[in-house]
């Protein structure tokens, strides 16, 4: 456990000045800020909406961008970055000749990538709530304060996190094995596009494909709005135990363990 904590701290120390680390802060800020100004400019069109609808549109717009393309690609990038830092500096041989177990080195790296994903999603949640409320303060006609979205939104982001774990494990392993940029990033990008298509065309087995999970999650949150007999006020339901989440968790755990055995057997060239 000590080795894990030391390695985790070292991961933070090493990456704190890199793009990987700052992208997890800048990305949510940029997207939320952009939508904030969009809503502020068009606030006259929104003043008659009830608080719930305002939140649905504001948070929904952010989630829509996030879930489809940005979250999978961010994870592809994070998984690549935490491994590439060692490929680039040729430090794998040093890391594995330190008196720290291979398990600690490997798992600390994985959990650090997971930690960055969590930070990013938490900031998305925080900025969504913050900028939403700020819109309400700057223009009191926008009744954001009418409805409390915090709990629901937190659940949505938690589900989004669970839905992205499969991608994280697969990308982490790819980035660990391939030192070049193109293979993990190319595969990740192609698979993300494939996932978007699968989820959008509503393919029956899309839930088996990890890269489709974030978008499936977004789509599952607003089922009643998607339905034909939509009620006047849509319902938001967050069901954690959907098939895609189960698959995501199984893939995440299986690939993570498989990765460890590969590290254990692999020679450090």
């Amino acid at each position: 456990m000590k080795g894990f904590i030391l390695s985790f701290r070292s991961e933070f120390y090493k990456t704190r000045k890199t793009m990987a680390f700052w992208s997890t802060v800048v990305l949510p800020l940029a997207i939320c800020l952009l939508l904030f100004f969009g809503f502020l400019n068009h606030s006259d069109r929104l003043v008659h909406q009830p608080g719930f609808m305002l939140w649905l549109q504001f948070a929904g717009a952010i989630l829509g961008v996030m879930g489809s393309l940005i979250l999978p690609m961010l994870i592809v990038f994070l998984a690549y970055s935490v491994n590439n830092i060692e490929h680039k500096a040729e430090t794998w041989k040093t890391l594995f000749s330190l008196p720290i177990s291979k398990w600690a080195v490997y798992s600390a790296k994985y959990f650090y990538a997971l930690f960055l994903t969590i930070v990013c999603l938490a900031l998305f949640l925080l900025f969504t709530l913050g900028f939403g409320n700020l819109l309400g303060i700057l223009n009191p006609a926008l009744k954001f304060s009418e409805y409390h979205v915090e709990g629901t939104l937190a659940k949505i982001y938690l589900k989004l996190l669970l839905s992205s774990l499969g991608i994280l494990s697969v990308q982490f392993l790819l980035s660990l094995l391939f030192r070049d940029f193109l293979k993990p990033m190319g595969i990740g990008f192609a698979a993300t596009i494939a996932g978007i298509i699968m989820a959008n065309v509503g393919w029956k087995y899309a839930y088996t494909f990890p890269y489709a999970h974030p978008l499936l999650t977004i789509k599952s949150i607003f089922p009643s709005r998607m339905g034909e007999n939509s009620p006047p006020i849509p319902q938001i339901t967050v069901d954690f135990f959907t098939k895609d989440i189960v698959v995501s968790l199984i893939v995440a755990a299986a690939v993570f363990i498989l990765g460890y055995f590969i590290v254990l057997k692999k020679s450090v060239k």
Partner: peptide
Amino acid sequence: LSQIGSLIEQPAIYSHLSGRENLINRALLL
């Protein structure tokens, strides 16, 4: 390994960190 210090081939150094930071990072780990 806890009693060995090693240097293999070209030194493995994080180029985005300063010399001191490279050493601090290692000190942290050890």
